[in-house]
Simulated assay, not measured.
Amino acid sequence: MDEHERHRHASSFGAVAEAYAEHRPDYAPAAVGWALEPAPGRRVLDLGAGTGKLTGALIARGAEVVAVEPDAAMLAELRRSLPGVRALAGSAEAIPLPDAAVDAVVAGNAMHWFDMDAAGPEIARVLAPGGVLAGLWNVVDDGVAWVRGLVEAGGPAAIGPRDTPAGWRAATAGIHLPRAGVPRFGSPERAEFAHGQRRTADSLVAALATRAGLVVMPEPERTAVLARVRAYLAGRPETAEGEFTWPLRTGVLRLRRGESASAAA
């Protein structure tokens, strides 16, 4: 995906902000705990916070959270659902916080949208020495047979290559962080945690419809993809009637900020 397409996809979510807030899954609590485990304190920045899916989980763990989100519609949903949270307009490339303001920076299904050449120095700037940078991603568990079939039925616009465990591992193995001129980050650590969301066929289709690849797709093609997904779910005994668990995994990538630019990378 070139830079123009990346920006187009990244900026698409405001058009579906209400549906995103209603239908997207939260994150496995154990994954959130692991992400924050090495942080030297409780001050946490939720960067690219969207509608607050991760923000609420951070608060539940006792974190002092500030949320930063560039899209006005997504930010409005976050403020509506979590009115007590300090929520600011801003981006990963221009974070509206002072130096060393937080002990952890986390991003839920957002880090792949960041321009890390600009965001890396900004994240390092707002992190206290020894602070943690952690990205969390919900991916579908395609080790389950009916989920594997759903991946095929929906195609890459509905469930992309990064949205399976193997694809997530490959994508995060190549994550780019600037190496010069900023305090360096340590070696990345990864972990995966079982997760799930109770869904019906209708609500799962609604969740998939908030994927960036579908949001930006021309309406006739989008309608065709969602119809294909709906037909597939109607034909599977696991999903044809009533509620079921959508099997997910929350993958976490975490790094620690060094004391200085000469810290080991």
Rank of each mutant, 00 (worst) to 15 (best):
R6H: 10
H9E: 10
E18V: 02
A21L: 06
A21F: 07
A21T: 02
E22A: 15
E22H: 15
R24V: 05
R24F: 14
W34P: 01
A39E: 09
G41T: 01
G41N: 02
L45G: 10
D46E: 10
L47E: 06
G52D: 09
K53Y: 00
L54V: 08
T55F: 08
A67G: 13
M74W: 11
L75R: 14
A76L: 02
L78V: 08
A92H: 13
I95F: 10
A101D: 05
N109P: 01
M111P: 12
W113D: 08
F114T: 02
D117E: 15
V126C: 09
V126A: 11
W137L: 03
W137D: 12
V139Y: 07
V140T: 06
V140R: 12
G143V: 01
A145K: 11
R148F: 10
R148H: 14
V151L: 15
G154V: 10
G155A: 02
P161S: 13
P161G: 04
R162K: 11
D163E: 15
A166Q: 12
A166W: 04
G167N: 09
G167C: 02
W168F: 10
R169F: 03
T172Y: 11
H176P: 04
L177P: 05
A180H: 15
P183N: 08
F185R: 07
G186L: 03
S187N: 14
A194V: 11
S203Y: 01
V205Y: 07
L214R: 03
P220F: 00
R222I: 04
T223Q: 14
L226H: 14
R228E: 01
R230G: 13
A234E: 15
G235W: 03
R236C: 02
W246Y: 12
P247C: 05
S260N: 13
